[in-house]
Write a protein that binds this DNA or RNA. Structure first.
Lengths: 200, 200
DNA sequence: ATGATTCTGACACGACCGTGTGATAACTTC
DNA sequence: GAAGTTATCACACGGTCGTGTCAGAATCAT
């Protein structure tokens, strides 16, 4: 038996995936082509297709990469002293408050729009969507250990809180880059305050 | 002086604009091409370009048509007896609760994504965005005439309420067509309830 | 009818698209 | 080294894209 050349395939995928992100953010979703991504990644289009045989596969990976990144960032957070503070940190990671997170959100939204009419992309989008919703629920649950949130039912508040997060995210990426994003962080904080009052 | 053939230009624009909507909803934003729209509208591509000289102009119109439609629908609502009920009706018109409004929202989101990287589309998107925000403010203001909402400051609650609306809208168009949408109406109603409590 | 003017549509150009094919390079084991 | 496997890449094909050009149809005051 003879062993051939071997590359780190997943590293290659990430490299290409991030190149795809840059293309989407810089030139828009309609420029997300095999050729443009290969150019951005500095490889030949044929090589790209060795890793991603078809455009669809690339798109799915691009979407999944967003989900993976967000997930990684969240599990890296260590809890603060108060549940409230911890949960606010968690939720903050879901908002495009800085350039890095903004890129993720723009890609997620752009490629996500393709999922509206492309059945192949649906599962990848739904995974991210469900993860987000599950995260909202878990965060709210964590909040209930705080005595101030005794009247809070996480199951009841998940949908609305999820909507607040995605709504704020949507509005954040609609404002010019480098513009102040603190208002959104304040809205998030205020929303969490409101959840405390709500439980009678 | 001699007068030539004259068509109702704005009617033609609407006809083509709606054809463009159908293309976007059915085949996705990447299929929004001069040729496809002309085919869907049943005219030659050259004729379409007589009304919309360039693709950009068509895109802008498509976006503006959404804004116009939503606006028209809202001004057509006649107030209910209670401010609360009226406002809830108003907000409901901003959510894609039925097929018609879903189409609008899908188009708005799809073409809106293009505005992220296309400066020509930015103004049209911003117009709709600002209208929506202004609407939220006005609706909340209307709510304050109700004694239950004495503690409500519309200026404070506009951003979050706007986020709730857009977040719910985003989630609604992510679920399969013909699936139940009542949950979102309930969330909206609940949000308005929460606003009443919040004012101490 | 006729002619000015608006409108329609067919065609062509160059560019980019996804993807199939096959030749070549790179690398590990023998 | 030599052989065999994997990885890289250039090229070509058919298709679609936006748009420029221009001939001709439709319309209305004269």
């Amino acid at each position: 038996m003879v062993m051939p050349k071997l590359i780190d395939k997943s590293a290659r995928e990430r490299l290409i995936g991030e190149a795809a992100w840059r293309v989407v953010v810089r030139d828009g979703i309609t420029s997300l082509s095999v050729r443009n991504v290969a150019l951005e990644a500095g490889i030949a289009a044929g090589s790209l297709r060795y890793v991603f045989p078809t455009q669809e596969v690339l798109r799915v990976y691009v979407l999944d990469l967003v989900r993976q990144r967000v997930l990684d960032r969240i599990v890296a957070i260590e809890p603060s002293v108060s549940p409230r503070e911890t949960v606010e940190n968690y939720f903050s990671q879901l908002l495009p408050l800085d350039a890095e997170r903004r890129v993720e959100m723009e890609v997620f939204l752009s490629v996500g729009v393709l999922a509206l009419t492309d059945p192949v992309l649906q599962p990848a989008y739904d995974r991210a969507h469900q993860d987000l919703r599950a995260g909202c629920f878990k965060f709210l649950e964590l909040l209930t250990v705080d005595s101030k949130y005794g009247g809070l039912d996480p199951a009841v508040e998940t949908a609305r809180t999820h909507a607040v997060i995605d709504g704020l995210a949507l509005h954040l990426i609609r404002q010019p880059k480098n513009e102040d994003t603190n208002w959104a962080a304040r809205e998030l904080s205020r929303h969490l305050d409101c959840l405390a009052m709500e439980g009678r």
